[in-house]
């Protein structure tokens, strides 16, 4: 028995001792919760760490998060306004209408919708698409209505910058972008600023997203200008949300 053990030891002592050393190292790793291993892993995988993965699910979850945050902030805002005894502008649910006609000549100026005065769509109602403001109803028959798009040159929207509250007038250009003319000489405007309908506009309710500033020309005479990309995809619209609105007549008349 002793002899067998001695022979075993003679043959395998080095392996056994190495295994014990390995065990000690493993025990150390276990006690430190694998810290050295993680450090080494981090070091060796550095070249691959920034390879971008499929971003689409991330964008989706980001959208969900932003929607939830927006709902939260909106309700908070409503509560604060109530505390200050300010008028709460209730967002109407509106009705959804299909785009049933759009002529090639007037692609950027007009659309025909599938709902009319029978459905409560009256001239003056505003149309929203996913992304923001689309336009204003100019005429309505019992079962259809005509929409003037914000990209039409005759469409004029009083707008303000969400960040700095500087105001101006946004005109359509028969294309994806409109031109924002500021009232003041030296407005605080940056590329990327969000443009909303202004509190003084008579034709639209205040605070609706219209677009985003894509370029700025402060040297323009007589007033500085900015090019604004409309945030609603005006070229792809199939459905719009129509909300009844009557133009304020007694407000400060900024827009014609």
């Amino acid at each position: 028995m002793i002899d067998t053990l001695r022979r075993w030891w003679g043959r395998y002592s080095i392996h056994f001792l190495s295994a014990l050393v390995g065990l000690a190292i493993a025990l150390g790793l276990r006690i430190t919760q694998g810290m050295p291993l993680l450090e080494a892993y981090q070091f060796f995988t550095q070249p691959w760490q920034w390879v971008s993965r499929n971003p689409e699910p991330l964008i989706e979850s980001r959208t969900v998060e932003l929607n939830a945050r927006m709902a939260e902030l909106e309700s908070q805002n409503e509560q604060l306004k109530q505390l200050l005894n300010l008028e709460v502008t209730k967002r109407n649910q509106g009705t959804w209408a299909m785009v049933i006609g759009r002529s090639g000549e007037a692609w950027w100026s007009q659309m025909v919708l599938s709902k009319g005065s029978q459905d409560g769509v009256l001239p003056g109602a505003i149309a929203l698409g996913s992304g923001g403001l689309v336009g204003r109803v100019t005429a309505a028959s019992p079962h259809s209505s005509r929409l003037l798009l914000v990209s039409d040159p005759s469409s004029v929207v009083g707008v303000s910058l969400a960040r700095s509250r500087f105001m101006g007038i946004l005109r359509g250009q028969n294309q994806r972008n409109g031109v924002l003319e500021f009232f003041e000489r030296d407005p605080d405007v940056r590329v990327g600023d969000v443009v909303l309908t202004s509190p003084y506009t008579t034709r639209f309710p205040p605070g609706i997203v219209v677009g985003q500033v894509v370029s700025i020309n402060l040297d323009k005479q007589p007033a500085p200008e900015a090019v604004v990309a409309f945030s609603a995809p005006l070229g792809l619209l199939e459905y719009v949300n129509v909300q009844p609105f009557t133009a304020k007549s007694d407000a400060l008349l900024l827009s014609p």
């Binding site: 392996h15 056994f16 295994a19 014990l20 390995g22 065990l23 493993a26 025990l27 694998g34």
Partner: peptide
């Protein structure tokens, strides 16, 4: 390797995996 060495090695690897 002999059984004993293999067992000790197995325990070590298991500890690393736990870590």
């Amino acid at each position: 390797y002999p059984v004993l060495v293999a067992v000790v090695t197995g325990v070590s690897l298991g500890l690393v995996q736990d870590a």
